[in-house]
Simulated scan of single mutants.
Amino acid sequence: MTNKNLIEALNNCIAHCNYCAGACLKEDNVKMMADCIHSDIVCAEICATTAKLLAMDSDMARKMVEICKEACEKCAQECEQHDHQHCKDCAEACRKCAEACSAYLS
């Protein structure tokens, strides 16, 4: 997988995580969504940093992709616990991003 393809997957994941976090904040029981919101924010930040390092062709990118894969998997697991469409969509984007990270690392 090229850096361009992974960067596109990362940016898609960032968009879904940010949307999910915002949508979770509008749910009736925001307290119940706290772990999801936190996971979304952390995942989006890690994906953004990873995309930047890949774009710069940094020698630290590979290590960051490993961390990013783990963050995406954790975020997907959290989002999959909720029935909201934004959570389902976010989980799918996170899973695809984790797969793109795996492909890059192989």
Rank of each mutant, 00 (worst) to 15 (best):
Q85E: 04
I67V: 13
A51W: 02
Q77R: 07
Q85M: 01
Q85A: 10
E80S: 08
C72K: 01
K88H: 04
A76F: 02
Q77A: 13
E73L: 15
K74N: 12
T49P: 07
H86E: 03
A76P: 01
E78W: 04
T49I: 15
C75T: 09
Q85K: 05
C72R: 00
K69S: 10
T49Q: 15
H82S: 05
S58A: 11
S58W: 09
K52I: 12
S58V: 08
A91L: 02
H84V: 06
Q85S: 02
M56P: 08
C90F: 01
I67Q: 13
V65T: 07
R62C: 06
E78Y: 02
A61V: 10
A71K: 08
D59M: 01
D89H: 01
E70L: 14
A61W: 10
K74F: 04
H82Q: 10
M64V: 10
L53A: 12
T50P: 07
T50I: 12
E78H: 03
A76I: 01
D59A: 00
M60H: 10
T49R: 15
T50V: 11
C75Y: 06
L54H: 04
Q81W: 02
K63M: 13
R62W: 06
T49K: 15
C75F: 09
A51F: 03
M56I: 12
R62I: 06
H86S: 02
H82E: 07
Q81Y: 01
C75L: 07
H86D: 01
A91I: 00
A76C: 04
I67Y: 11
K74V: 03
C68M: 07
C90V: 09
E73W: 07
H84A: 09
Q77W: 01
L54E: 06
L53Y: 13
A91S: 05
A61E: 12
E80W: 05
S58G: 08
E73A: 14
A61I: 08
E78P: 04
A61Y: 08
R62S: 09
C68S: 08
I67L: 13
H86W: 05
K74E: 12
C90G: 05
E80M: 09
H84S: 09
M60R: 09
A76S: 07
M64N: 05
E73N: 14
K88M: 03
T49M: 15
C75Q: 09
T49D: 15
D89W: 03
L54V: 08
T50R: 10
L53E: 13
R62M: 07
A71S: 14
H84T: 08
E73G: 12
